[in-house]
Design a protein around this nucleic acid. Structure first.
Length: 568
RNA sequence: UGUCCCGUGGUGUAAUGGUAGCACAGAUGGUUUUGGUCCAUCUAGUCAGGGUUCAAAUCCUUGCGGGACAACCA
């Protein structure tokens, strides 16, 4: 693939094993040549970059095979699920650039059908009501190496099971008093086949069905059937569900026993979930960060959530590019966060307007430049994209430059400003440092320079080469702005990989630093939330929604690649 | 002492019995009015042993290593 063709999900040739499996199914004539996928989040948290991988995969497959992808909320546990999450999930998927087929679907839409199937399984002798407590069930379940024991309720008559299940549905029992279990094999080497629970009693209102139900189906008795109802051909999920696959197939087999062969029979295919170094991906732990106020919310720019990345300044294109580059396979993986950063730089390099912003300003006075004079300097908006044109920026006698760009005693390869040295002011003149002043604490307070009037950018005399080029803003014209710099949230490359240390122990105390005295060129007074810029020589920055009229707030998405500080 | 899955450069991912390739990361040089971009070059890999074959990363086998599974979560 050439550099010109930015790979986007579903738009280029796929080589991962899932596509190969689908091709195989198609070649064998399965499912009448149809392909239909689904993305099935539980609405119990915000989507994160790991979900983005799954979204790109499922929607990408649909697109590749000229089909569609369903969005289905797996909402079988009213205790954990909230409408806020349903809304955020839809927003995030659409922002990523994908659209599900028709209306969003809900597992709860199928509660009635699921109930009927459960009754059917009881009648066929494949399910029974069990009175054991959670503790008793755990005790008689055995372990991976020790077979379990049968429940004393395992051989209740069909009639009794039917009556009891009906009474469970009618709310005649307390939570935990009774459950419906599948009758499979308590000695199975697969723990999930040891008479798994199909229904439990929960006396909580459900966000969609209200108080209609007080029994709720478990994941295993819901997911495969929901796929089946929707005609999903390939049910793609992560590796930890692999051991559920026999059960997924068992329920469908038993439900379909005695029925005509269906046109579509879903196949579950598992792939390895995404892991990122220096990052946690567990929804439970992300929720903990939110609830304990360690971050400002699910969309804190340090969070690996889609909404966090969006606020940080990531683009949908960059995230899709990332999803393509990490690939899809079955081996455990830990992706270097540098790849994510590469992707957003790659995207923004082509799109972002270059502007001048000085984050840590120090005043520089050009002694031989006339007081009160203002020149408008032409500067190109994006050297990577001529069509973005150019603009004018004001230049005057007093400017701000970056404190880092001056050193009193520079090392040999320092190309910036130092006593007696010359630098180019980007899009303006070459200046020479003549003197500087320090305050009482020994901090540089002012720098004095002379300029070469023949060196104006674009003029004949501008050919002269100097080693360094600095960004700057005219002091009289600069606007004030706030900039938020982010560093990784965790100092350990695998924060939740330590058995004896809680992941919160690794939180980086300096993951956020706020700069309040930044000086920027005038055009940045009027910006819209999520607008993106390259601050010349610094990095990519995105306008935060906290911005106020005349006082913008910028989030640093990612710094530019920097081969200078690396050398230090 | 169980069942299942997985082992390709530092990190990912291709090669599906026929030249181990690509990307990120790292290093070096060139261009440059961003120490950015771009360009060029380099570093570095098939977990180990045995077998099948003209030929094995690929098939078989035995080890070794990693992971998943014992929620009325999904």
């Amino acid at each position: 693939m050439s550099k010109e063709e930015v790979p986007l999900s579903g738009e280029e040739i796929k080589t991962n094993f899932i596509y190969q499996e689908i091709d195989k199914d198609l070649a064998e004539g399965r499912n009448g040549g149809k392909v239909l996928t689904r993305f099935p989040p539980e609405p119990n948290g915000y989507l994160h970059i790991g979900h983005a991988k799954s979204i790109c995969l499922n929607f990408g497959i649909a697109k590749h095979y000229n089909s569609v992808c369903n969005l289905r909320f797996d909402d079988t546990n009213p205790i954990k699920e909230e409408v806020e999450y349903i809304d955020s999930i839809q927003e995030d998927i659409q922002w990523l650039g994908f659209q599900w087929d028709g209306e969003p679907k809900y597992a709860s839409d199928y509660f009635e059908q699921l109930y009927q199937w459960a009754v059917g399984l009881i009648k066929k002798g494949y399910a029974y009501v069990c009175d054991l407590t959670a503790e008793q069930i755990a005790a008689q379940k055995g372990s991976p190496t020790i077979p379990g024991e049968n429940s004393p309720y395992r051989n209740r008559s069909v009639e009794e099971n039917l009556e009891l299940f009906e009474r469970m549905k009618n709310g005649e029992f307390k939570e935990g008093e009774k459950i419906l279990r599948a009758k499979i094999d308590m000695a199975s080497p697969n723990m999930h086949m040891r008479d798994p629970i199909m229904y439990r009693i929960i006396h909580s209102d459900h966000h969609r069905t209200g108080n209609k139900w007080c029994i709720y189906p478990m994941y295993d008795f819901t997911h495969g059937q929901s796929d089946f109802i929707e005609g999903i051909t390939h049910s793609i999920c992560t590796l930890e569900f692999e051991v559920h696959r026999p059960l997924y197939n068992w329920f469908l087999d038993k439900i379909l026993e005695g029925e005509p062969t269906p046109a579509v029979r879903t196949r579950q295919i598992e792939f390895a979930r995404l892991n990122l170094n220096y990052t946690i991906m567990s929804k439970r732990k992300l929720l903990e960060l939110v609830q304990k106020g360690i971050v400002s919310g699910w969309n804190d720019p340090r969070m690996p959530t889609i909404s966090g990345l969006r606020r940080r300044g990531y683009t949908p294109e960059s995230i899709r590019m990332f999803a393509d580059k990490v690939g899809v396979a079955r081996r455990d993986n830990v992706i270097d966060i540098a790849l994510l950063e590469y992707c957003v730089r790659e995207d923004l390099n082509k799109k972002a307007m270059r502007v001048n912003a000085v984050l840590d300003p120090v005043k520089l006075i050009i002694s031989n430049y006339p007081e009160g004079k203002v020149e408008m300097m032409e500067t190109v908006n994006n050297p990577e994209d001529e069509s973005m044109g150019s603009r004018s920026i004001p230049f005057s006698r007093e400017i701000y430059i970056e404190r880092d760009d001056f050193m009193e005693n520079p090392p040999k390869k320092f190309f910036r400003l130092a006593p007696g040295s010359e630098v180019r002011l980007k899009s303006a003149y070459i200046i020479k440092c003549e003197d500087f002043k320090k305050d009482a604490e020994g901090k540089i307070s002012e720098i004095y320079c002379s300029y070469d009037p023949d060196s104006r950018s674009g003029s004949g005399g501008s050919e002269r080469k100097v080693k360094g080029t600095l960004h700057w803003v005219s002091a009289a014209h600069a606007i004030d702005a706030e900039v938020r710099l982010y560093d990784r949230l965790f100092l350990d490359d695998e924060p939740d990989g330590h058995k004896d240390v809680d992941f919160k122990e690794f939180i980086n105390p300096n993951s956020l630093s706020i700069l309040n005295n930044c000086k920027m060129e005038p055009m940045l007074a009027n910006v819209q939330p999520l607008e993106k810029f390259q601050f010349q020589r610094l990095g990519y920055f995105s306008v935060d929604p906290d911005s106020k009229e005349g006082k913008p707030v910028f989030n640093r998405t990612v710094g530019l690649r920097d081969s200078w500080t690396k050398k230090q």
